[in-house]
Design a binder for these strands. Structure first.
Lengths: 222, 222
DNA sequence: TCAATAATCACATAATCTATTGAATGAGTC
DNA sequence: GACTCATTCAATAGATTATGTGATTATTGA
């Protein structure tokens, strides 16, 4: 094989991986899978796609080697095949954030005044959570909480926050987190909690980053 | 704007960045640009594309914010806009390498026995280069050498290596490098040098990684 | 001002990608 | 064995992308 052909092949392989990240729905699926294992139906609901369409995107991701599938009964559970996939998602996010003015505009517009919500960072939370002086609140949907959450975190999905707000100790600061920097749930939770008179902040990173950093994680407790 | 729309927009922006990496030619263009600034014609030649086609790919890359262009006379010089682009290229390479069996197969097939060429790594080279006991050899084309190379490296393009081999000190070990892990030039150089009786090794990483690591770089000396 | 050159643009064509629909598969249940 | 459900497959139409050709623009130097 000539050097030229060889090079061509290599770049084609890279492009195959890149192609997986060239579609908004696939990126969303990957971001959801970064939270943990999901079935096709769960994915299709979370991403707002038809099941068949979701399945096809998943086939493509599987061919690119980014996700793995295992069949349990009649369900197929999908998962990211590797932490390198998260690395690439993070790199893509960073790059997009820096270069696409549009992203920044969206973030700033939607998130009211971003800085006003004073995000806290992983290591800072780690220090303070140990003392038990903060309540760590997971506002993701229940299934995601069950699939894995920050150790000791209380799980109240965003849509139940209002009715279950009395599960929180009013004297403690609350740190809310969700799926990552671009997940809206934690923002909404902080706004809601402050309305109710809580001292509340948001974890800048989300659960995937937390897990990736090797911080303590636990599964659903019975 | 509803949360749903917002999310959609964000993922679409990410996909726009991802799309830039979904084509083999564009990835090649980015890899070439990772070596340093290039004009459209240089790029088209290096990648084996027509000028018009190259230009169009460059427009797309520019819209995605990955490259910058500056006009000097009648030439337009392109450049990567950011080191984050290199980060993403590296992440893409790593992920592809791990997941696509095909890539590994190609690497192993073409590169004879890879390990037999005993690559040396950046920090190791850094230590040894200081002592002046190794000759660091840049085998990339002259233009790329001129645009920036490892400090103190001797520049002999691969296609001139045979005729200019007497510029190398026979008693010194030679470390050859080129554009990165997938660049063939350094492999070919090591093979050639060993034929000629030199003790020769290859730098596993290439110039982009060297520069990225903050190691000393110099431009063409007069 | 004119010719030469680098780069881009505009258009046409072929190839590829995406979403939808409905059928097929395969496991579990009654 | 018939039925239900999760998932995949297959076929299709519509949208997007890649590339070549030839025209156009911008800059330089004669």
């Amino acid at each position: 094989m000539a050097v030229k052909d060889y090079k061509k092949s290599i770049f084609e392989q890279f492009a195959r991986t890149g192609k997986a990240f060239s579609n908004a729905h696939r990126i969303e699926l990957l971001e959801i899978l970064a939270q943990g294992e999901r079935t096709v139906e769960q994915l299709s609901q979370a991403a707002g796609l038809t099941v068949a369409n979701t399945s096809q995107h998943l086939q493509l991701l599987r061919n690119a080697g980014l996700v793995t599938a295992r069949k349990v009964g009649q369900y197929v559970h999908y998962n990211l095949s590797d932490d390198l996939v998260v690395d690439l998602l993070v790199a893509l996010r960073k790059l997009s954030e820096r270069h696409l003015a549009e992203v920044e505009r969206l973030v700033n517009t939607y998130l009211t005044v971003k800085d006003d919500l004073e995000p806290i960072h992983i290591h800072e939370l780690m220090e303070r959570a140990g003392d038990g002086v903060v309540t760590v609140l997971d506002v993701r949907p229940e299934a995601e909480y069950d699939a894995g959450h920050i150790k000791g975190a209380l799980g109240i999905p965003m849509d139940q926050l209002e009715e279950r707000i009395d599960e929180l100790k009013p004297e403690q600061e609350v740190v809310a987190y969700c799926r990552g920097p671009y997940c809206m749930l934690a923002y909404d939770a902080v706004v809601k909690l402050r309305e109710k008179g809580f001292e509340a902040r948001r974890l800048e990173e989300g659960f995937p980053e937390w897990r990736k950093a090797g911080m303590p994680v636990e599964l659903k407790q019975e």
